[in-house]
């Protein structure tokens, strides 16, 4: 059974779907970290808030598509406010202060969500076009999962284009490469950071609303992805788009095939993979910083 090609193909798609979600979550965190060394532990909170805003929009308008657009925009705005009010003053602070502030924001975010949306779990219904399944090698596979894979690939392509072909992309690349030199050359690293931070927030919000129909919406969903996202960032090598994609792929596959092939080690698989990667390549799979 385990070597049956259909079975393996289905599991591969499952791994790809998880990788796609993890990529959406990790890429913003990774580039922000690479750019400014800024550790945002509240990234999972943005994911949770994205899911809840998506829930409210989908409930009130009846449109999943609207939720898919509104949630990332709303979370990006929220990120913007936080940046202006709080994080702007934290950029130069020691990493440990950033840890404490963003850890505090996890608590604030969780209780705010409980206060606004209550303690109960919710689901988001899919539009007819995405509900149901298609046949993959004779097995039913949910269309929505293929949609998630497609969305992940589309975001990856768009970010790649943006990074290579736009002025902002050039700023970001210069900033990640060598912050000091870039600043000396008159490049506004702070502005690049702000833009990337907001984009990262939007993508976390997008991940939240995309995950909601599969993983549901509940208080505590933030912590369920935080560690996984951090692992993806670190395995891939912080500051790199390619790294985030590669890290997401490695963890998505390790998690999926680990559960199937070595169930006894399912709970430690991703940690073991991370430990192995870090010991073999202490800077992560992709080295972003050259300077």
């Amino acid at each position: 059974m385990l070597l049956d090609p259909t079975f393996l193909a289905i599991q591969f798609l499952n791994g790809l779907q998880l990788a796609s979600l993890l990529f959406l979550l990790a890429v913003g965190l990774s580039v922000v970290f690479g750019l400014m060394g800024f550790i945002n532990l509240a990234h999972g909170t943005l994911y949770m808030i994205g899911a809840y805003i998506g829930l409210s929009v989908a409930r009130s308008t009846g449109s999943f598509w609207l939720a898919l657009v509104a949630a990332p925009v709303a979370v990006a705005l929220l990120g913007m406010v936080f940046h202006v009010v709080l994080l702007r003053h934290m950029q130069a602070a020691s990493p440990m202060k950033q840890v404490l502030v963003t850890f505090g924001l996890i608590f604030v975010g969780l209780d705010s969500v409980r206060y606004i949306w209550g303690n109960y779990s919710h689901g988001i219904d899919l539009p007819a076009v995405l509900a149901g399944g298609v046949s993959v090698l004779g097995e039913t596979y949910p269309i929505y999962r293929l949609f998630i894979i497609g969305l992940g690939l589309a975001v990856l392509a768009a970010l790649h284009w943006g990074l290579e072909r736009t002025r902002l992309g050039a700023l970001v690349r210069a900033g990640v490469d060598d912050r000091e030199t870039a600043a000396a050359l008159g490049i506004d690293v702070g502005l690049a950071f702000f833009a990337v931070f907001c984009l990262g927030c939007a993508l976390a919000g997008l991940a939240g609303v995309v995950a909601a129909p599969v993983l549901s919406v509940y208080p505590g969903m933030d912590m369920s992805v935080l560690i996984l996202t951090l692992i993806v960032v670190v395995i891939g090598g912080p500051g790199s788009l390619k790294g985030a994609a590669l890290g997401a792929l490695v963890i998505g596959m390790a998690q999926t095939f680990g559960q199937v092939l070595v169930p006894a080690l399912a709970s430690v698989m991703i940690y073991a993979v991370m430990a192995a990667v870090l010991l073999a390549r202490p800077g992560g799979l992709v080295r972003a910083r050259h300077g």
Binding site: N14, L18, Q259, V260
Partner: peptide
């Protein structure tokens, strides 16, 4: 019989494919 990790498991799809095959 399978016992997925308590908190780490969010995607049950890998287990579902296994059950289907059995």
């Amino acid at each position: 019989e399978e016992y997925p990790p308590l908190r780490e498991t969010k995607d049950f799809a890998p287990y579902l494919a296994k059950i289907k095959a059995a």
